[in-house]
Design a protein around this nucleic acid. Structure first.
Lengths: 147, 147
DNA sequence: CTCGGTGCAAATGCTTTGCAATGTC
DNA sequence: GACATTGCAAAGCATTTGCACCGAG
């Protein structure tokens, strides 16, 4: 994980937008995201930062996650619950999710064939893709074994 | 659209559950859903019913939409916004959505190949599928033409 | 007659907002 | 300096809940 490269992406994005400023909070939040594993929500990222002695407000966390999403450093998902989940997208292949409705486990999977078919379908309809999400809800193998 | 058949599905589902009762409100909500076109949210379904002189509470609408989802008569989605969207699923093929980030238009599409590949991917991971959602975000052809 | 369901209204919890203070550019 | 950004705390808003009454089985 190359922090410097991620910082550069954010810096360029902020500059390119014309009226965004490079604040320490934004880079601190990016760092916290880069250190994260798997999926997290805004709240827990906030608490992790506070616990680590980084000063931020929740409002800034939400705001910055939005910006990080805009420049592709973070992906945002909404699974079953009422909370948005995020994950770092930097240095990771595009993937999708199987969500176990029993234990809440999230299994990631990559599939090039689907990717290609989606593209075809969009070309057919002259739809210009920006991002795609596939969510498969069901029961994971662990939960199928032990009821 | 066969109302009777849908009613039967609901009746059986309620009976099968063992402790759900067949109340007039539940069937009234099912009827309102069957009369709907495209996607709607709980609020607008509620207001449509009230306007038509059907007496229900919002709580019951939410509760019943959950039940209708359980028996496959309704599908629930969460697109970009903060509101859950529903659509009737009775007598409709399984399909997915392209969401235009510009005008909010939702384009439905069906693709058997994707369906099959998803199944394969799940078999590989011993994941028992219950439902799948594909969401493609981007710009529709209309919006691409006129900026 | 029993207990699940209904309808309010109030509560919940995630997310956004208003505003004064702050710090980039 | 100008004005975007921050940090609170308060507001918003979709959804859920608590509770007394109602009615299906």
């Amino acid at each position: 994980m190359d922090f410097q490269e991620a910082h550069d992406i954010l810096t360029n994005h902020l500059k390119a937008s014309g009226k965004h400023r490079a604040t320490p909070e934004r880079f601190a939040i990016l760092d916290a995201v880069l250190q994260s594993q798997g999926h997290f929500d805004a709240e827990s990222l906030y608490y992790r930062m506070i616990t680590n002695g980084v000063k931020v407000s929740k409002a800034t966390v939400y705001n910055t996650l939005e910006i990080l999403q805009d420049c592709g450093l973070v992906s945002k998902y909404r699974f079953a619950e009422n909370t948005s989940r995020y994950e770092k997208a930097f240095g990771r292949p595009h993937h999708h999710h199987m969500i176990c409705l029993n234990c809440g486990d999230i299994i990631e999977f990559v599939n090039d064939k689907i990717e290609r078919i989606q593209e075809e379908a969009c070309n057919e309809k002259n739809f210009k893709v920006q991002s795609t999400t596939i969510q498969i809800f069901g029961t994971c193998s662990k939960c199928t074994k032990r009821p």
